[in-house]
């Protein structure tokens, strides 16, 4: 790891000021991706601005309409929250299956979606549930948030405050894990809300995305059989030693059907 300046921020404005003062600063959330990346010297920020001490970035607030989760809430906290389990059980289960228990005790929702790893779990939930990302500057709809591989709509000095997930009628997430990293080779999140079914896929391509072909085929119904007719564009799929493009395309269908079946049961 290259040496850097460590800054402990006490408030969002404090953190933004520290970022603006830094040559090449990075916000530090749970650190479960950032620190390994820095250990391998693949990143060498001048400053790390630790967001852990900022109270307003933490906590879970559940209403009849939505589940709002502070950006610095850990995966373990989301997984263990009975409020989340009751409101959007699929979201709690997704959080409880990220990484491993020790990683879940540190890793955060905000860190995950800000990093936007193409194989991360949370982006699929944000997209399928049609969540809203509240930042230090604005509110960003899910469909505008993830802009490309490891890229988001966030500005350099913009901090995610919370993510608000509308409560779905039903939802489910199915993940086919990379056996080594335990990231998603393919993960499919299906959510039904007020007559619409939204489907989001992670792991399969360079960036988590809505599976519009599947959504169109479903036409608002949780009917797994309708997915059989969908063709997944193989040329857009990732291909690596763990799964070639056509296998991934196949898995998108299989995981989508399983998620639909789980959401409708």
């Amino acid at each position: 790891m290259y040496e850097f300046n460590y800054r402990h921020a006490n408030s969002v404005p404090d953190a933004i000021a520290a970022m603006q003062a830094a040559d090449d600063g990075k916000f530090l959330a749970g650190g479960q991706t950032m620190l390994p990346t820095m250990k391998h010297r693949l990143a060498g920020p001048s400053d790390l601005i630790d967001l852990k001490g900022i109270a307003e970035l933490k906590g879970i607030n559940v209403t009849d309409q939505s589940v709002t989760i502070g950006a610095m809430t850990t995966h373990a906290e989301v997984a263990a929250s009975t409020q989340v389990q009751n409101a959007i059980p699929a979201l709690a289960r997704l959080a409880g299956n990220i990484g491993d228990p020790a990683v879940r005790n540190c890793g955060t929702l905000g860190g995950s979606i800000a990093n936007n790893d193409p194989a991360a779990d949370y982006p699929s939930a944000v997209l399928a549930l049609g969540a809203t990302v509240k930042t230090s500057q604005r509110e960003i709809p899910a469909d505008e948030f993830f802009t490309g591989m490891f890229e988001t709509a966030l500005a350099e000095d913009e901090i995610i405050v919370s993510v608000s997930f509308p409560v779905a009628e039903s939802a489910a997430y199915m993940k086919f894990e990379n056996p080594a990293s335990r990231y998603a080779i393919v993960g499919v999140f299906v959510a039904k809300t007020a007559g619409t079914v939204r489907v989001a896929v992670t792991g399969a391509t360079t960036c988590a995305h809505r599976a519009l072909r599947i959504e169109e085929a479903l036409a608002g119904e949780l009917d797994a059989e309708k997915v059989d007719a969908v063709t997944i564009p193989v040329e857009k799929m990732n291909s690596d030693i763990h799964a070639s493009a056509d296998y991934r395309a196949h898995l998108v269908i299989v995981m989508a059907k399983r998620a639909i079946a789980a959401a409708s049961s």
Binding site: Y6, K39, L48, A102, N105, C106
Partner: peptide, 8 residues
């Protein structure tokens, strides 16, 4: 529990 190799 945390992984102390992934915490400063």
């Amino acid at each position: 529990s945390v992984k102390s190799c992934t915490m400063l």
